[in-house]
Design a protein around this nucleic acid. Structure first.
Lengths: 241, 241
DNA sequence: ACCCGTGGTTTACAGCGTAAGTCTGTCTCC
DNA sequence: GGAGACAGACTTACGCTGTAAACCACGGGT
């Protein structure tokens, strides 16, 4: 006798029943695969083997879906390092760990992070829908319990967040570039050579031309670590206790 | 005798003839007024007293229009400080001036800056369409001529850009919040109280609750100056010459 | 007188988000 | 067993979007 199933509504298609979580998860996968502009209600529904309007029972329209997607990613940010690594013992360790946690999520979903960055910069994390209070809470309490004054903690929160935002936005963009397939138009050959004048004008921009390869190198990882270190050192200096 | 007009095609309607520049300018004003999602080809055309399809003679579709909008804003960034202020004499002065130039543009068009930030982080400024090579060129040459090695100049460019990006994204978001009218639904009173549980849970997040006013204060201006100073000092240290 | 480029309009269409109605199978209570 | 109730999907329909394509008006140039 087969193990009982909690839902008898399985139409023998092996299709999991719809749910908000499933829809959001699939939306994330979809955006990862095909980009955010390709995400339409119908297309997403199709991927779930379902009609578009069915989604509306679980999701309050496309805007709400995107909110949920962002929320889901924010949820994945770990708030506290595992005890056994002793990272929580000093605030350097904590901030370092948090930065990497955010970075991991951002790099796992490069197509979504810009959305997170523009719709939920730290400034708006405390407005409904409250997406990440728990991160802020953890952040502030950790710093305060390590001896910072309240205003200092808040200031560090701001500095730290804007640092992360800029750094990751750039890194995500850089990676998207290097991995993106070169967009060859594959149109009819009618296209008149329009991008010749777009070519880098070596006469006008000699330095950029000379340093081009240097500029397009990807140091993201190392640079991230170094900049993070620098930020922490600076905080050390600023708030020497 | 009235001064002669260079265009005899004026249909007595007082309407300037269409042009790419005019369209882009109007699009910027539109976004400033009504936000980016409200910008549709028909709406913009209507504002120009013209039919939607007329825009397509000057603009290669909506996507191209947005590109042009971003490009126009990037163009407005001044590349070099006026000679008479002596800011170009030291690289601190130059970077400070450049940072403020970018900041001015960002704060003048808060609804557009996120678009600039996500579509044109520094990493993509060197790919066609080459939007801001001249900024990069000026940046690099200035630093190099002040004694930095080439790799240093490139690294500073990266650090500086990610700093600006994060800082301004946050500031723009913060300002948008404080000035945004509180979105009261004005629907029928049918709406069941759904945002009660969204309220800040004081029990679970005591620190955030306590520091809420501190967190929502707007120190953007002062903080921007301070962070910029700190960054420059750090660069001083790092590349002490 | 003709033509043709310039700068617009008109018409048309596919695809979007989504409001509203409808079907269908299962659960619950008698 | 029968009768609702109801959840979870599908179907239809509407208004709006971006945009392709065809169509005019008209002001010189030859």
């Amino acid at each position: 006798m087969p193990r009982e199933r909690e839902s008898a509504a399985e139409p023998a298609g092996g299709r999991r029943p719809l749910s908000r979580e499933l829809i959001v998860r699939e939306a994330i996968a979809f955006i990862d695969d095909e980009g955010i502009t390709a995400l339409t209600m119908r297309a997403l529904a199709g991927r779930l083997g379902v009609e578009a309007m069915s989604l509306y029972r679980y999701v309050n329209g496309r805007e709400d879906l995107l909110e949920a997607v962002v929320g889901s990613l924010v949820e994945r940010i770990e708030v506290a390092p595992p005890d056994d690594e002793g990272l929580a013992a000093n605030w350097h360790g904590y901030l370092q760990w948090l930065a990497h946690s955010v970075r991991d999520v951002a790099l796992q979903h490069p197509a979504i992070f810009p959305l997170v960055a523009t719709r939920h910069p730290a400034a708006t994390w405390l407005r409904p829908p409250l997406r990440s209070v728990r991160i802020v809470e953890q952040f502030l309490t950790t710093l305060i319990q390590h001896g910072f004054r309240e205003e200092q903690a808040v200031e560090i929160y701001r500095v730290f967040t804007s640092f992360l935002l800029g750094q990751l936005l750039l890194e995500v963009a850089a990676r998207g570039e290097s991995t993106a397939p070169v967009q060859v138009p594959l149109d009819e050959g009618d296209a008149d050579v329009p991008n010749r004048d777009e070519e880098l004008d070596i006469a006008r921009f000699p330095t950029v031309a000379r340093l081009r390869s240097l500029l397009s190198e990807d140091h993201s990882q190392a640079e991230f670590e170094r900049s993070l270190e620098a930020l922490l050192d600076r905080l050390d200096l600023l708030f020497a206790q």
